[in-house]
Amino acid sequence: MIEVIGLTKKFKEVTAVDNVSFKVDAGEIVGLLGENGAGKTTTLRMISTMLKPTSGTAKVCGLDLLKEPDKVRKKIGILFGGEVGLYDRLTARENIKYFADLGGLSSEEANKNIELLAEMLDMKEYIDRRVGKFSRGMKQKVAIARAIVHNPDVMLFDEPTIGLDVSSSAIVQDFILDCKKKGRAIIFSSHSMREVEKLCDRVVIIHKGRLVYDGRVEDLRREYNGEDLEKVFLRLVGDKNE
């Protein structure tokens, strides 16, 4: 469903992502693992067509992001970590509806999806209130609904649990697992090995823009004789540092 082919991004002199290739199948969660500044966000921004690759490309559901960026965007849903980025003066429903409209949904479709999402995420009580005064967890749910309201086949998560408390993190993690159940292809970026271990089928480790590992989590563990994965990660990254 997602095929990343030799993706490279240079910012002036700095090569943020250097010839990265990997694949993600439907119903699969791939963890994109790396330290801060390793190139995870840049990779996701390229896949979502926000940034133009310097070279290489990616295919989403068979669509080349260089040739058909609009169609690619239609297939993709993104959830960012950190600030959820909602319009405080709009209600939860208006926030979600705005993105549904911009996603090209008809009004009936949008309203139907919003009702379903409100039910699924248990937001009915506050869906018509302005989000300005929402708690972090409530905002997180709105952001989730917004990311998925257009029924994307592919979900990209960019460190979605960063700065979240345990219960809000759980909301996000449940949502990711639910996406998997629905057969979506998922890339989940994180710098936490533990989270990746918990959720992901496969892991892609990048360091200083380069791919250093691409394989199943169990294989990684087996390769390093059942060592703690956090340590494995450090060793992989450390090897390259030398």
Binding site: S48, T49, D70, R73, I78, F80, Y87, G103
Partner: peptide, 14 residues
């Protein structure tokens, strides 16, 4: 500043 620009750029709107 609110972080709403990035999600907006991933929509169908050019």
């Amino acid at each position: 500043e609110r972080g709403t620009l990035e999600p907006l750029l991933t929509t169908q709107a050019s």
